[in-house]
């Protein structure tokens, strides 16, 4: 890949092209109501992808985010029934996310365990606690004022209420990653943990905080999910972890850490959401859409490698030709 067309820029171009093509092909696609639908559909994925970008950039991963979101969602339902106050319930839900993230962070940074194994474990643990809390029941008596936030639009616009939350958080996370010391630390740790440690960066503390933030945002995503479906259920957000990670990686973040941009990730989430919506409008069955997600994810890692090998090959051949013809 040349510098002009880096991966994150390519994703942004893809997003623009998709939206343009979609608008031409299908008038429904560019309609306001569909735009609102897409934003609502990607809301939780986008939220969790923001802190996940930080985690993957430092070379860690959190597979427990969907279970954390579900547990926070269940706590929301449980606390609402117990306290009768939605404000308390939302606080309890986000607090649950913080605790879940802190447990992950403790196991990874204090005990030195691998985050992949730890979060596969807590994925099961947190999901199990969802069932322990709510059993097989669902809580569906949230006050209408709150659930309206989940599925109606901001008056006068086609945008769902989750939009400002997404925009503000995306900007905050983007600014922190690219314009602050913490962000530089994240890049440094991802490039080389050893070097970062020698440079005096508190690696363990940084990673612990990233896990906590990821948990908190996953908890928030659990609240958004509950309000969108107007119910708290133990099997909520099932399988979201892989969708989030796929989006982050497709957005150009290296799984080895140290490389990536926040706007690449945001473009990736929006792009995947638009493609899915466009194909759904064309009548492609939902499950088949996973081919697109998977194929794009593979393309995002295959194309740079193939391009690099191709240019290396051409350079070699060019040298050989130059040597052959004096």
């Amino acid at each position: 890949m040349s510098r002009v067309l880096s991966w994150d820029r390519s994703v942004f171009v893809l997003l623009v092209v998709t939206v343009a093509v979609g608008a031409v092909v299908d008038p429904d696609f560019a309609g306001g109501s569909n735009l609102g639908f897409v934003l609502q559909d990607i809301g939780e994925i986008m939220l969790i992808a923001l802190p996940m970008t930080f985690l993957i950039m430092t070379g860690e991963i959190d597979l427990s985010v969907a279970s954390t979101a579900a547990l926070a969602g269940c706590v929301l339902g449980w606390a609402w029934q117990a306290s009768g106050s939605m404000a308390v319930a939302v606080l309890a839900a986000v607090g649950t996310g913080v605790v879940c993230g802190a447990v992950n962070g403790f196991l990874v940074t204090r005990l030195g365990l691998g985050s992949l194994a730890v979060t596969i474990g807590t994925l099961g643990l947190y999901r199990g606690l969802c069932y322990a809390l709510l059993g097989d029941t669902t809580v569906a008596d949230f006050p209408a004022g709150w659930t309206n936030l989940g599925f109606s639009s901001i008056p006068g616009t086609p945008l769902p209420y989750v939009t400002p939350l997404l925009v503000v958080l995306a900007i905050v996370f983007g600014v922190v990653l690219h314009l602050t010391r913490t962000g530089r630390w994240v890049f440094a740790v991802g490039q080389s943990v050893e070097a970062a440690r020698f440079a005096g960066i508190p690696v363990a503390r940084l990673k612990f905080r990233l896990f906590v933030v990821t948990g908190a945002v996953a908890g928030l995503a659990g609240v958004v999910y509950d309000l969108r479906f107007a119910s708290a259920r133990p099997d909520g957000a099932l399988g979201f972890e892989l969708a989030v990670i796929a989006s982050v990686l497709f957005g150009g973040v290296s799984i080895f850490g140290g490389v990536g941009t926040m706007w690449g990730v945001v473009s990736a989430v929006l792009f995947l959401g638009s493609v899915r919506s466009l194909l759904q409008l064309q009548g492609v069955p939902g499950n088949a859409l996973t081919i697109i997600t998977g194929g794009l994810l593979l393309a995002s890692v295959v194309i740079p490698v193939v391009a690099q090998r191709w240019s290396a090959f051409r350079e070699r051949r060019g040298r050989a030709l130059a040597a052959a013809a004096p």
Partner: peptide
Amino acid sequence: VTLGTLYVFQG
């Protein structure tokens, strides 16, 4: 890779 093929094979 295998996350990608997870989705591709499923699709």
